[in-house]
Design a protein around this nucleic acid. Structure first.
Lengths: 191, 191, 191, 191
DNA sequence: GTATAAGCGAGACGGTACGTCATGTCTTGAG
DNA sequence: CTCAAGACATGACGTACCGTCTCGCTTATAC
């Protein structure tokens, strides 16, 4: 097939793979500490022990860098649930997602806030992060549900509830909330 | 003591009342056109024909100014529905809410983003606006549902879905979405 | 007429006159210490306790700033010689000129370099400074010499020798050099 | 002695002799077009179709490279004069030198200006270029003159006059100027 | 042959400075 | 005391080069 000619040997020194890890770690740490606005490319570069040009070589702007930094742990933290039934799978998925928010919550809240403020970041954040999370949840739900039409709104309700509480803080994102949401979703999706 | 002669004749030139209106108009217009980040105090001052010092005399920073400019959006505007059944009432309430977003959407989106960024504003915004909207929806739902325990999460799901789409823009906030959400909620709340 | 009300009261805060003095002092000091290339606008700003923007508001670039800072060096300071004979007058004139270079040398060297790099400054520097010095020397020489045709090249030789050593530093600009040049010039101009 | 084991067969691939020519051509061309400051090693490398490392392997810095590039044509362009008398030889030497400036003048002007700005470049430029030209002229003069003591200042006067006009542009560097300088120098050196 | 060693084009790397922009403060003169 | 104007110190922006460091390749001598 030779489809993957992408990895043809390029000339010049190859990119140092350690850079990405160092940058993402620095970026996540700063994001959690001081918030999106106060994260500067200079600070990320300094914290990661990296030149500014190296950041701009790999990410076009701060938004892309931070989304990349958060994307990694969100996708790798939530295990695929397998309880066998719809409600249980949803509960487990949401429970895992909420648990991850213990550490990633502040950073993600900043990113979603930024999405509300900046249209171009909005697109990138949805395409690279939020829509992927919706797809992951959709896949789980669709294992048990045939009526596809109802699934979309229910996914928006589930993730919506999560973000709503994450942004406003008027209620906890705990195991009980996961259970309540899962129960409501399961009933909503029942034939 | 009557020390608080607030309206006592203060020395010096009085504040020009036209300034606030001009500034708010300029600010909302810029916010709609270019987005929060690209709004600068300098641009607001120039657009309003006002000196920068005048802005800083009245608002401590850009966020506060824009919050002031947008707070008028966070006002009740949805008529009380009366279709007689749960699903119909929810659909009508959400439909009205979504319709109002046509004009108030950008302002509210900015306010919710600001709530995500600023904890003190978060509290104020939830207490003065968001929780009141939840209460209004709760009252409507509770006309038809006795099982109170399930209501809270469903309200978060409904408003959550709305905000989720408002912030990310990945799907429309239209009559059909109101209908789908109402149907799902009604099933979730059914005994 | 009064058209030239250049100094008409302009609105806004007036420029702080202390800035120019502080900047020039910092610039000349840095120029003397580290040389033109190593002088950075950032260092000048820091040393003068001034913001970078303030520098760029007043001077378009580093060269212009330093030219301003050094132009004070380009001022007449040599007393008119009166030894009665050609060789003595030349020697005394050059000796005085060389002595002044003790302090003004670095600044003048920079200015001449700048003249070599920037054609428009070249014209200005020649008209306002270098040609006047040549005229001064010419007047002294012409007191003793009638053959005008030979004078021009000799003046270029004398000032040329000075600048050549000032720029390259391959030989001293001292009393002995003044004497040697005067002797050579006197012979060259002899009938 | 075999001290000069320079040409000992060294292991590894030998240096490509075409590189130096390509680099010098590119460097001279850039120097003439945009001036010393605006010449960057990256641009030279790109223009010569050469890697940056190749430049740094052969020249320690930009200054050395550009001096090298200009040295070549200055030394090879001026033929050894042989008119038989002092004044004629000087005139012919200067005439040839001035003629070469038609093409090399702008580049050399940049280099001399840079020498005035940068002490470390100053040394290199004098050692590798200017002092060699003075030596060439000294040799010619010393064929006819025994009184060595007067020669040094006269050489500074001759080359000084040339650079003075090259930098300030207040007079032409033509055959007549060469003749006038030669005549003055010959008289100055006469017993 | 087959190491070994250096040169080569390319380009990523940690840095420094650039010149621009916006922040929030300050200082004018006018009202 | 407010207002419009604009200078001020500060600090991040994104770019351009610096001089160094890998890469994979080429081109020599040495074993």
């Amino acid at each position: 097939m030779a489809k993957e000619e992408t990895s043809a040997k390029k000339p010049g020194r190859p990119r140092d793979p350690a850079v990405e890890a160092a940058v993402f770690a620095a970026a996540r740490s700063l994001l959690g500490e001081v918030g999106y606005d106060a994260v500067s490319m200079e600070a990320v570069a300094a914290a990661a022990g990296v030149g500014k040009q190296t950041l701009y070589r790999r990410w076009p702007n701060k938004a892309a860098l931070l989304v990349g930094a958060c994307l990694v742990d969100a996708t790798e933290r939530v295990a695929d649930p397998a309880t066998g039934n719809l409600e249980g799978d949803i509960e487990q998925f949401l429970g895992g997602t909420f648990a991850a928010l213990e550490t990633t919550g502040p950073g993600l809240r900043f990113l979603m806030s930024q999405a509300g403020l900046d249209p171009s970041f909005r697109e990138r954040f949805d395409a690279d992060f939020a829509s992927r999370r919706r797809d992951a949840l959709r896949e789980i739900i669709c294992r048990h549900v045939k009526a596809r039409r109802q699934v979309g709104p229910v996914i928006d309700m589930l993730y919506g509830a999560m973000w709503y509480r994450l942004l406003l803080g008027h209620g906890p994102l705990d195991a009980r909330f996961a259970r309540d949401l899962a129960a409501a979703a399961a009933r909503a999706l029942a034939a």
